[in-house]
């Protein structure tokens, strides 16, 4: 089998494990909101996003309008546009339009993070590997959560809540250590995020992440524009 595909699978295993526990929680919530196990699993398979799905289930539960559903998804998931734009800059030449149409389905926070940390250009095989294993974890966790309720004792499932964040830290810390401008952007984003959590609380968390990320990255780009050599890497 294609070695890039295998590499994608191996890079996706931590995401898969994290997704299993997060989507387990989503499955429980969806079932509690009156959705069947199959409906919850279809939502997970077709959306592959945590915050958007949770908000979507809320709209379904409260009988909201289609317009409300569209706006909620647009606002919460608009960050994927930024991520897609960022990834589009580092695609291998093998990434033809059909591959792009297919792989764009799998742009999630975690998959984006791992892909953007890659030094080499991204190939379709690599992205399919990482998307496939992550999606399996996401749908399986949803299915188990919705059908079986609490399988894990609370002490384990709560400790698993930190898995995805641990992965984020593993992605952000090493480049921050090497590169002061990345460290700067990371700290500014964290400070803005704290501000929105405790001071400017009227902004919803989806919006807050967008504002913090755009703000911190823009300040970083103004103060520390990258050199042309860095782009070639």
């Amino acid at each position: 089998m294609n070695s890039r595909f295998i590499k994608g699978i191996s890079h996706g295993i931590p995401i898969c494990l994290g997704y299993l526990s997060v989507s387990f929680g989503f499955g429980i919530t969806a079932a509690a909101s009156g959705l069947s196990t199959i409906e919850a699993s279809i939502i997970s398979a077709s959306n592959l996003t945590s915050a958007g799905q949770a908000a979507g289930v809320d709209v379904i539960k409260t009988g909201g309008t289609i317009l409300e559903m569209i706006l909620v998804q647009l606002i919460i998931n608009i960050r994927y546009s930024l991520m897609g734009l960022s990834l589009s800059q580092k695609l291998d030449r093998k990434f033809t339009t059909p591959h792009r149409l297919l792989a764009s389905y799998g742009i999630t926070d975690e998959i984006f993070a791992v892909c953007s940390a890659q030094k080499q250009p991204l190939t379709p095989a690599y992205m399919y590997g990482i998307i496939l294993i992550s999606m399996l974890g996401w749908v399986t966790g949803t299915f188990l959560g919705a059908s079986a309720g609490q399988l894990l004792p609370p002490s384990i499932s709560s400790a698993l809540g930190i898995v995805l964040y641990g992965m984020f830290i593993a992605i952000v810390v090493p480049p921050s250590r090497k590169n002061k401008s990345i460290l700067f952007v990371t700290i500014v984003a964290a400070l803005l995020s704290i501000l929105f959590k405790y001071v400017i609380t009227a902004i919803t968390s989806g919006f807050a992440v967008i504002i913090c990320a755009i703000g911190a990255a823009a300040i970083g780009a103004l103060l520390f524009p990258i050199d042309d050599e860095e782009v070639e890497e």
């Binding site: 960050r79 930024l82 991520m83 734009l85 960022s86 800059q89 926070d109 984006f112 993070a113 953007s116 940390a117 964040y165 984020f168 830290i169 992605i171 952000v172 480049p175 921050s176 401008s181 990345i182 952007v185 990371t186 700290i187 500014v188 984003a189 964290a190 803005l192 995020s193 704290i194 959590k197 405790y198 807050a208 992440v209 913090c212 990320a213 755009i214 703000g215 911190a216 990255a217 823009a218 970083g220 780009a221 520390f224 524009p225 990258i226 860095e230």
Partner: peptide, 17 residues
């Protein structure tokens, strides 16, 4: 530059606090 910094900014904002 902005697109290079975006991933770190997104992850940091999502992780902390």
């Amino acid at each position: 530059s902005f697109l290079k910094y975006i991933p770190y900014a997104v992850l940091s904002a999502m992780t902390i606090p």
